[in-house]
Design a binder for these strands. Structure first.
Length: 437
RNA sequence: GUGAGAGUAGCUCAGUUGGCAGAGCACCGGAUUGUGGUUCCGGUGGUCGCGGGUUCGACCCCCGUCUUUCACCCCA
């Protein structure tokens, strides 16, 4: 055979068991919480027609998408998020669905952007969305779900920051920012956390030019609660409209609070999110000790997107997405995962002699039938080597059954963590491991 | 897409002015043929990312390229 040098594409990676085990554990927790809120799983293809994926107005996004012609000459792209495919899914399957529809989707997405810390070209997203409800209760459910997921992951130092697009639009009106300047102004606001206060003030003044407007803007940014926000808008010309959305946020927030889920949720005036499709509440989650990783769990309300794929219906949607690859990177850097498990099995049966191979498999299968994770050592190696293998893989126990033991229908069970060894009847193994592991 | 740093054994990295390719860990074997966290002894392992150039001679200097890290742009 000729040698082929193994290599990976930029931004793509292998997951070794150690990391894949962690990821799978996260997926399990996430889907359990999603399902506890009544979200059902769906799946959609990795490839879609290119014009479907860009339907909401390409721009920058087009550069970030993997795009090619398939063997039939079709213009296709790999999905770069799970939200646009959801909108397409809704349009295509609306007759089969019962609205309001709650779905979740855990799957990889692809973005041809340059790599960076915790950012890859292929990564997993875990999305949950409610389609077909414009109620503030749907917003609350999503926020409470986010809080539950983070709690279940045992993450303590997170902050869910919320804002509302409508309020921002009123702010822009108030500051008399012209339509064509809104994007660059919003981008500046979005980056507030990345620069020093004085630089930010300088840049925003440069933008607004007018000292009075600038002061007003800074007043807005100092709103750290919905009450102060209300106070800020109270005597302005846009208040009639803004107050509706402040009221809505208050209602949304108090549902969370009344149910003990509001402690890590706060109003944040400079949360913007991407400009493409959000129409109402927006939110981001940051880890206070890992701010450089950016938002790890975010989303918002988008009431127009799904309607693009439907002739005669509009679907109000609200949802959130966890960037699980980035979250794991951040947690890993912080030593969140104490002992790295490199193998899922808990028990290794030592291979003492070919004569007993059948017996080993038999013992293993009985344990396996009881949902225990068991391996039999396959090669006829020295015991020393088998133990070395065992401690490297991190099993909790090994079972030694040689001539002496099997003659008496017993085995030795050795705790690999405690360096202790006990004799035990074969029939007692299931009970012992069920109690111990 | 832009800018800067890095790429030498499986891993982490040394490598003098441009003059024979190194260490630790890991791996394999032995001390120890039924017992893994320690010890001791021995051994395997490199096209110095790849391609070109300069030079008597290149891991070292130059150009290109790929990968990677960090930052920018962007982040649905």
């Amino acid at each position: 055979m000729s040698y082929i040098k193994p290599k990976l594409l930029k931004g793509f990676r292998d997951l070794l068991p150690e990391e894949a085990i962690i990821q799978k554990e996260f997926f399990k927790v996430i889907s359990e919480v999603f399902e506890s809120f009544g979200f059902s799983p769906i799946d959609t293809p990795a490839l879609e027609y290119y014009d479907i994926l860009t339907g909401k107005g390409g721009g920058e996004n087009e550069k970030l998408m993997y795009r090619f012609n398939d063997n039939g000459g079709r213009d296709v792209g790999m999905r770069y998020d799970l939200t646009v495919p959801l909108a397409r899914f809704i349009g295509l399957n609306q007759n089969e669905l019962n609205f309001p529809f709650r779905r979740y989707h855990i799957a990889p997405v692809w973005r041809a952007e340059n790599t960076q810390k915790g950012r890859y070209r292929e990564f997993y997203q875990c999305d949950c969305d409610i389609v077909g409800s414009d109620s503030y209760l749907a917003d609350s459910e999503i926020l409470m779900l986010m809080d539950s997921v983070l709690n279940r992951m045992d993450i303590k130092d997170y902050e869910i920051r919320i804002n509302d697009r409508n309020i921002l639009e009123d702010l822009f009106k108030l500051l008399e920012i012209k339509e064509d300047k809104i994007i660059s102004f919003a981008t500046l606001m979005d980056k507030k956390d990345k620069m020093s206060e004085s630089v930010f003030k300088e840049k925003s003044l440069e933008f607004l030019k007018d000292n009075e407007k600038h002061k007003q803007f800074l007043d807005f940014l100092s709103c750290d609660s919905l009450d102060s926000l209300d106070e800020f808008f109270k005597d302005t010309k846009v208040y009639e409209n803004t107050s509706i959305y402040i009221r809505r946020l208050k209602d949304t927030f108090s549902i969370c609070k009344e149910n003990g889920k509001g402690n890590n949720i706060s109003y944040c005036p400079f949360i913007i999110r991407g400009l493409d499709y959000y129409t109402g509440i927006v939110f981001e989650t940051v880890l206070k000790d890992s701010l450089s990783y950016g938002a790890v769990f975010s989303g918002g309300r988008y009431d127009k997107l799904a309607g693009m794929f439907s002739k005669n219906a509009d679907y109000s949607c609200v949802g959130a997405s966890i960037g699980i690859s980035r979250l794991i990177s951040a947690l890993k850097e912080r030593g969140f995962f104490e002992k790295d498990k490199v193998c899922v099995a808990d028990i290794l049966i030592m291979n003492m002699d070919k004569r007993y191979h059948g017996k080993y498999i038999n013992i293993a299968n009985v344990l396996r039938d009881n949902c225990l994770k068991v391996e039999v050592y396959l090669n006829d190696d020295k015991l020393k080597k088998q133990f070395k293998f065992a401690s490297k893989n991190g099993y909790s126990f090994s079972i030694i059954a040689g001539e002496d033991e099997l003659a008496n229908d017993i085995v030795k069970v050795k705790s690999l963590k405690a360096f202790e060894e006990n004799e035990m009847k074969i029939d007692d193994l299931v009970g012992f491991f069920k109690n111990t592991l």
